[in-house]
Design a binder for these strands. Structure first.
Lengths: 253, 253
DNA sequence: GAGTGGTCTAGACCACAGC
DNA sequence: CTGTGGTCTAGACCACTCA
């Protein structure tokens, strides 16, 4: 049998011993590599199941199982009749979503974001470290304040490496509510995934003033690192919001 | 062909039209019903794949797919060579888990819980409503304080319907750290699932004193409803913890 | 109509558990 | 040894999409 594209150790279950890793997992890795290396980017159509089956020399059932797993992991989505695509990151899954989107009567409420600061310059060393750049690297800083029900509810602080997003700090560059669309379309930086950490703390003076609450009232802090291909961080973001407007529900089994 | 156990509308894909629901979903519902009705309880061994295949008159591949989905949903777990079992609820998935389990050096730290209050009586109407009982129903109340690193870190308040857990309020009934084991083993109440809601708020006087923090310092509040069979609530619990000891991380894709 | 994913079948062999 | 789940194959037909 010829060597196939899948790295090594191909076999039907029968002939071989030493089957360290199931075949379908190799198919998964093959696809994952294509995504993480940037060979395929979010929104792309991947090879069809029969094609993958032929090219990788595995049965179509095995391909289906591999794709099932990747769909389940959120890396791919299927569309019957069209094909299988690389997922776009879905920030609706962000914990941020649990800042209340509805008033007491359950009526849906609009969030308005206002850009309140925007400049180019050096950032604190803690941010540079997270962005994995030198301390004297030029960064772009953005602050946006989110209003829910005409009431300032959260503050979003965002840091970018300036060389990756030229002119982002300029007033002419319009910042849409769906910020990441700008990054993907304008700057051709695919956004692959993000990590978030949620904590709560007491409100400092400047945040208290902006959110129109007392100093030391409880606020929810959401730290986010946003990743592009090859696991490179492109943005560090901190969202601080009024705790009384936040609640997060989940089920345990 | 004879009618099978699966409610209705059985067919191979070919002969019939009007296939509202895929076969594997019916198999899933068949199992789910057995669990929710109490016919099977957490820890039970379910029928093997070949048995299910014969009894439900579907192919073994279809059974596998159904069980795969239920495993993925957390209702079942498999053990090669042994069989497939109904999951025990895993409170390690609780958000509570994100109260720090390690000190600064990353050394793991033990949590000690002390029962600080325990009595039988009437509860506030808000609790009765959540438990779906009359306001004059006898309840058992428990308070436990959790210490991490010899420092009080969270307070657990728990309400039960007294008639379901006789003598729980008595001192002779030892309360183990893994509380729910007692409920399942002693009182034969299967714990099926739980719902949690996370918020943050400012610390009230009494909590401040118990946690040894200033009044109005931020605390994380975790409300939990615990369910037994037939979606009946058996416990209402509120955990309040020092916000500075809490952080919750997740990935978005 | 050609191509895609979605469902389903009917087997095979392997690895593991327990007697 | 028998029975369990885990992997894999090689098909079939269906439902959907788009040209």
């Amino acid at each position: 049998m010829m060597d196939s594209i899948l790295s090594s150790n191909i076999s039907t279950q029968k002939g071989d011993s030493e089957q360290a890793q199931p075949l379908y997992q190799k198919v998964e890795e093959y696809i994952k590599n294509q995504i993480n290396s940037g060979e395929m980017t979010p929104g792309d159509l991947i090879l069809s199941e029969p094609r993958l089956s032929k090219e990788l020399e595995v049965s179509i059932g095995t391909v289906k199982k591999a794709l099932d797993n990747l769909v389940w992991q959120g890396l791919l989505y299927r569309h019957q009749g069209k094909g299988t695509f690389v997922s776009r990151i879905d920030f609706n899954n962000s914990l941020f979503r649990f800042f209340s989107y509805a008033d007491e009567k359950g009526k849906e409420v609009r969030i308005r974001k206002f850009t309140t600061e925007r400049w180019l310059g050096k950032g604190p060393s803690s941010i540079c470290e997270l962005l994995e750049v030198d301390e004297d690297t030029e960064l772009v800083f953005l602050e946006r304040i989110g209003h829910i029900n005409h009431q300032p509810t959260f503050i979003e602080n965002s840091w970018w490496v300036a060389s990756m997003v030229p002119d982002l700090e300029k007033e002419e560059t319009h910042i849409p509510d769906l910020f990441y669309a700008l990054i993907v379309d304008q700057y051709q930086i695919p956004i692959i995934r993000a990590e978030e950490t949620l904590t709560a703390e007491a409100c400092d003076d400047s945040t208290a003033e902006k959110l129109n609450v007392k100093k030391d009232s409880p606020i929810v802090v959401l730290n986010r690192s946003t990743f592009t291909i090859a696991d490179k961080i492109v943005e560090i973001r901190t969202t601080k919001g009024r705790a009384d407007q936040f609640s997060y529900k989940r089920e345990i089994r």
